[in-house]
Design a binder for these strands. Structure first.
Lengths: 277, 277
DNA sequence: TCCCATTATTCCGTTGAACGGAACGACCTC
DNA sequence: GAGGTCGTTCCGTTCAACGGAATAATGGGA
């Protein structure tokens, strides 16, 4: 067995990838693209056929993917790609500037924090809670989103929040005041947490509660065209550094980070989707 | 080994499917959804991580898909799903009505025949050539497409064909005359082959050349909203049956077939993409 | 029509990877 | 700090993966 190092699972997946690179392939092509001996390719293709991901047209026409392959990735969305692209870049940022970063995306009618660089920051503020919802209107993430998203999308979200019963969503019921706030955000280029003391999170270690502080988020958008893919928020403590100071020293690096995330996401989602064959 | 019957490849793919059904899963959930013992799920997840399709967040946050899963299906398009949905239905149709059917989709600037029920038809007319291009303007498939597609799309295609040097694309240079033809197609609900004797196809058996006949296609669209996903063409011989007769006896079943393909395609492409978790 | 080059398919002995029950360890809750 | 839940690791058994080589089918050309 010459290639005993690579597991059959990985080989089968590379067969699928090879087939995505060009439809209706002949065995020889598939085997060559996947880098496998033909007899191995046949065996793997048989398994994929058995499992329903591939079908065989005829000897001469070769093989073809079936719609079942979509089940392997339909749950992966653009917002997941953004988060994936952002994570290593966010870690680098926090190692350099110390303050922790968080990234949030819209999910339905709320803003969800998908990742944070708590582990990299020497300043322990919040524990990292994956998938934690963030208040749309009071949080920096949500405000940045609303300030920079297209008009039609903002109208949809605000209308939905306006029907909400939660007090936290009430600002949506005062549209002109709220629009004024958003104009300010667009002018400055960043959003800030409004509302005061952050509420304690469940599961927070006892020691940290002693460090209960005024914590503010400064958020900027990650764009794609006119859409907001996600927002990045830098969380800092009032008592240590002022808004003015943060804006002067950290805002431009934060914006550069957002641009870098935009570039990386674009690469991730366009690579390989060009011409086929 | 209790479940030795299912190959590791199939099990790994069911893990991926399970993960698509809900993001950020814990091991227990994944194992349960995929129907596997936990130790097996771990082993398969390790392989998927090794291959770069999955990443592990933390013990508590569980696992997550990476953008690499998109490589497993990006080559599969909506038009492939239509063809896949149509094939068995087309075979049933030909078994009942004898005449062969063909399905074509647009691919760039040409119409491509993606499947035909030659094997099921007792009337051997053409051999089935997968991926064979069909002339846009003279063939029934292309004419049906142009007649029923949205205006903006038709303008794009006709403009592109108008720049063509091939004589076969010349009708595009007489727009008002051509538009009149299309209006007729929309009124009748079907397109017919224009141009006379079909040219011989490469690879056609010698015997069949004796049966060189006037062959006509009668094509109807498969729609999704205002878009044409594909066109179905019934190919019959002038010498045996007249257009009038075909329209009377076969047109309505052909239209019903198109509607059934529309329904099946919709199911295939929306199933599982509803709510998650 | 026959022949040859090309490509797909099948076979088979060897071997290593997959398997899962069970023991272990970490974490959270009460 | 005790109990329970969930993730992790271990290990001997067994079966499926492996690919070179022989065979079969195909299609194109003379």
């Amino acid at each position: 067995m010459s290639e005993a190092t690579r597991a059959p699972v990985a080989r089968a997946l590379s067969v699928l990838e090879a087939m995505n690179a060009a439809h209706s392939l002949h065995l020889g092509d598939i085997a060559a693209r996947a880098g496998l001996p033909k007899s191995s390719a046949v065996r793997l293709l048989d398994q994929l056929i058995e499992a329903g991901y591939v079908e065989k047209l005829s000897r001469s026409a070769g093989y073809r993917l079936t719609s079942r392959v979509q089940r392997l990735s339909w749950g992966f969305r653009l917002s997941d790609a953004v988060v994936e692209a952002a994570e290593p870049l966010m870690r680098d940022f926090t190692k350099e500037y110390r303050w922790p970063l968080f990234i949030g995306v819209v999910d339905g009618d709320q803003m969800i924090v998908r990742y944070g660089t708590v582990a990299e920051s020497p300043v322990a503020i919040d524990p990292l809670v994956y998938e934690a919802p963030s208040p749309f209107l009071l949080g920096a993430l949500g405000q940045a989103y609303l300030a920079f998203c297209p008009d039609w999308e903002r109208k949809l979200i605000v209308a939905r929040l306006g029907r909400s019963r939660r007090s936290i969503d009430q600002p949506a019921k005062n549209p002109e005041e709220f629009e004024k706030i958003l104009r300010g955000i667009r002018r400055r280029g960043y959003a800030l947490t409004s509302g005061g003391l952050r509420q304690m999170k469940r599961g927070m270690p006892k020691r940290a509660s002693d460090a209960r502080q005024r914590v503010t988020g400064m958020a900027v958008p990650v764009m794609r065209g006119d859409r907001v893919l996600a927002c990045l928020s830098l969380r800092y403590m009032h008592a240590v550094i002022s808004e003015q100071e943060v804006a002067t020293t950290h805002l431009e690096p934060l914006r550069e980070l957002a641009r870098e995330v935009e570039r990386t996401t674009r690469q991730m989602t366009t690579a390989g989707s060009g011409k086929r064959e």
